[in-house]
Amino acid sequence: MIARLLLLVLAFAAPAARAEQLLLSLSAERISITSNFTGADLALFGAIERDGATVARASTYDVVVNVRGPRGSVVVREKSAIGPFWLNADQRRYIAIPAFIATLSNRPLPQIAGDLMLQKLTLGVDALVPPQGRRTDIFDPDEPNFRQALMRLRRAEGLFVENGQAVTFLSQNAFRAAIRIPGTAPLGRYDVDVTLLADGVPLTRDSIAFTVIKGGVEQRLATASRERGVLYGLATALMALSLGWLATVIFRRD
């Protein structure tokens, strides 16, 4: 972790004085989940500020936006044939994995920077899901399969996204990124890290955040179920009983 931080510092220290600066703004800082929630669209606007002393660059800018949802632990299980049955056998645990990752850029990541630099800057799904083997093993040859499976399954669910066209430049120094939050997105804080690059070299980085919360009724129900479980259960049971009773009254055949 410290080594990575050092690398980051070095990476940013390279182009001498910070010539460019980012100004970021999100279309909303809070997404509220209500009964008709099926996902949300956010727009991120960014402006690139340059001080007068900066020499004009020959090349154009690249922007990479990393959206990271709240982190949680996941277990990846592998089914194996045990006799005639296919049952979960082997498993690996991955801790502090973002529940949602979107890496948005103005062109595909491999064209923006090399693999090593992307890893160093933790840009892209691959860099945000670090390999985590079993602690007891020095070398875990099966681990890559589990990690690949985790990324494949989350991509299929639309929770891990890489889009090389989601960032569009409005002018030479202004850009816009379209962030799509799916209906199954988990609740919590989402960090939006924006990295500005040119010629595969990072120039500056800034971040902004938004939160996904449950709206009025949904929030109250979820809180009630969590904090007043017994009461919530009794109320649900009472609702079931009274609806069952109501049905006998409505459909009474005498």
């Binding site: 949802g69 709240p70 982190r71 949680g72 632990s73 996941v74 277990v75 990846v76 299980r77 592998e78 089914k79 194996s80 044939a81 005639p84 049955f85 296919w86 049952l87 979960n88 645990r93 801790i95 973002p98 529940a99 399969n145 589990f146 499976a149 985790l150 494949r152 399954l153 989350r154 988990p186 609740l187 919590g188």
Partner: peptide, 20 residues
């Protein structure tokens, strides 16, 4: 069928600790 037929996807992901 779920446990007898060779699964198309052998891996599954479960959240053990809810992200907050």
């Amino acid at each position: 069928l779920d446990i007898l037929v060779t699964p198309a996807e052998r891996y599954s992901v479960t959240l053990t600790e809810t992200p907050r």
